[in-house]
Design a binder for these strands. Structure first.
Lengths: 397, 397
DNA sequence: AGAATATGTTTGACGGTAGAACTTAAGAGC
DNA sequence: GCTCTTAAGTTCTACCGTCAAACATATTCT
């Protein structure tokens, strides 16, 4: 048995809780499985009897959390009834950014069921009007999938979120100290928000689990995403690290040079001053919108572009080297415009990190590019909703 | 129910596991309780029936994991039989440093039962001779408490430990790539080591739980300990963060200034180059052994001492500011010689961090001094052993 | 001494999983 | 086309742990 920490359960468990736990275990096993398993498969993997596996599966099927399908490839013996995560169970993920609102409905099976998007100026609209826009886009997405059973909604915002509900400060939105769960209220028939999260944290959550309940190739990584600013997240053991109050992951404000350029955050020489879109484009001598050009120009050998990429790699290596030394995670995933530049950066950054990271000799730092999209935070938010289902399907009965 | 992550149990649980879980829950509740609880107290707190609580308690008492004591203050009603963690259940904590070996036996109740120490030159002795010394000191401590039931041993070393057993590199010991669990073998009748850990990580573990199973005032903190080098640990939700391979917590090698003095680690401007004993003493113009003088001199207004403390506060603020922004933990605990200087540093460091930390406005960073001793890592190692007991007491039956 | 009060114990009921025998539905071989 | 083999799923009983409620016990308060 693994040693779990001192944060043990505050209350003991009876048989009811045992069944609930096992329902979750079975659902998780189905979600995790790359191929749809049968009841007998589950019994074998979870070391329970076929009788018990069948009992639990039947209950999940009755609740719509699992779907039964017939096998396609014939085999000897009685054919199995294969199990898939319920395709009608779905979560609503919302994203509010400065210039647009996105709503996405994702099924427990990992399929995108609906997408709605609207360009709006949330700065001009303010909190009240902005949340009206969020409600409207959410309703649009939900209306597109009347058959889905929505189990909840979560919202991604570009700012620091405390305790999973209060937006403390979103510089680009110019919103501050809003309890978004209370302010938004029930959303499109899914009840109040289950969670409010930072944009980058939720984008990272979408990378962790491409499919609900199935952790992808990187259970531990540092996510660094560049856009207007530089956001990030620390993912450890398949979990986004939120910190004491939810303010973790601000990799953009790791100090690269204490004598560096001043940052609006009040500090000096933050990574964001080197890696955000605007300083980067300026260093390369292009307009921010033309950033993809930098890659081409650098490859073509243009000096200013090459210098800009070099300095970016340097700044990233100083900041990430420090972070890797502290959190002991040796996979870095670049997102946003940093993903665009990743082909140019990767090798250089890895080499620099090898020199800066204490444990690089036996655990070399690997740099990867995320295939994230502008809608990733919304997907991550939807994934967060479905996480509740996978963690405790019994709550839906 | 709280949402646990996707790292769910690989196998479902039956009633046997249910009982085992509940045994752990009861023992944890007793350990956590500041006052010894009765069976009825436990039933109330854990929301189980008195019948079940009694059943579980009886089993733990029979196994020696709980002791019964009579209440001292009389109360109305039938007097309760109060429960304490078993005083004869004990863990052996070992510490191997460059110039000495320490062994400490700690009871489940948190009492120090035995201490043995020997000054030896582990660099000169090498791995084989050094481990002989460790075995000898361990035997000495164990012999002092014949009544104790030792449930295992753990070892703290001043270096990077991978996967809880292999010492990858200990600069001050000049040991490398040793599987210490295999190399040390069974220790003083307690069987092979349950765990090998980094010195600073284990010192932090001792701070987390002053008493086994009871998390102290800081469930989340950054530990920074200065001595020959600068070690550290990240503690999150009562757990020391080990990282992917066990190499986390190297706060000493966070970059303070990319143009700073070169560090033996191969990087430049690491925190260790500012905050370790030797550079600090040199900056203050004293011999390393006279460091406590620096505090007195700085208080007396001596310029070089004041400058040294100022620069230390600056370097710590740059490094810790970055770390706090990433891990979202707003308590810093200083150990080693940094604890000695804490009275001078505290306010200045807090003020500087307030300016550097993004979330400082709603979650101010607090700096504290640890009351750690040179033997703390050994205590932490012993605590680690007892953790296994608290996590799964059923394993001892 | 008796009432009040709270702890701890006993008893039977309930619920969930384990184990083993049984049923079902296919392919394989003749 | 029949039987044999294989494997999935189902049924039934046994076992075990917790729950609920009544009971016994040991003290203080009146």
């Amino acid at each position: 048995m693994s040693v779990s920490g001192p944060a043990g359960p505050r209350s003991a468990v009876g048989q009811a809780s045992l069944r609930r736990t096992n329902l979750a275990t079975v659902l998780q096993a189905v979600c995790r499985s790359p191929e749809p398993p049968s009841r007998a498969d589950l019994a074998g993997r979870l070391t329970i009897t076929r009788a018990t596996a069948a009992r639990l599966v039947d209950e999940l099927v009755a609740g719509g959390l699992l779907d039964e399908v017939d096998p396609v490839v014939p085999r000897r013996g009685r054919p199995a009834r294969l199990l898939l995560p319920g395709e009608r169970i779905a979560g609503l993920g919302l994203l509010a950014e400065a210039d647009r609102v996105v709503a996405r409905v994702t099924s427990l099976r990992g399929d995108l069921l609906a997408h709605a998007e609207r360009g709006v100026d949330l700065v001009a609209l303010g909190v009240s009007g902005g949340l009206d826009a969020v409600r409207a886009v959410a309703a649009e997405a939900v209306a597109a999938v009347p058959a889905a059973r929505l189990v909840g909604a979560a919202l991604a915002v570009p700012g620091v979120v405390a305790d999973g509900r209060t937006l403390v400060r979103a510089p680009n939105l110019d919103w501050s100290d809003v309890d978004l769960v209370a302010a938004l209220g029930p959303v499109a028939g899914t009840g109040p928000l289950l969670e409010v999260g930072n944009e980058a944290d939720l984008a990272a959550a979408a990378i962790v689990e491409q499919v609900p309940g199935r952790v992808g190739p990187w259970p531990d990584f540092l996510y660094v995403s560049g856009r207007r600013g530089v956001g990030g997240a620390v993912v450890s053991r398949g979990e986004v690290v939120l910190g004491e109050h939810g303010g973790a992951g601000e990799i953009g404000h790791v100090c690269v040079d204490p004598a560096g350029p001043p940052c609006p955050c009040g500090s000096q020489g933050c990574l964001e001053r080197y890696a955000a879109l605007e300083p980067l484009a300026r260093a390369a001598g292009v307009a921010p919108a033309d950033l993809p050009d930098v890659a081409a120009r650098a490859l073509a050998g243009e000096a200013s572009a090459r210098r800009a990429v070099d300095e970016l790699a340097w700044a990233l290596s100083v900041a990430l080297g420090s972070v890797v030394n502290v959190v002991g995670i040796s996979t870095v995933v670049l997102g946003g415009h940093l993903a665009t530049l990743a082909p140019l950066l990767r090798q250089d950054l890895q080499d620099r990190l090898a020199a800066r990271v204490l444990g690089a000799r036996w655990a070399p730092v690997e740099v990867h590019a995320a295939d994230d999209s502008p809608a990733s935070p919304a997907d991550g938010a939807a994934r967060r909703v479905l996480r509740h289902v996978v963690a405790d399907p019994g709550a839906l009965f």
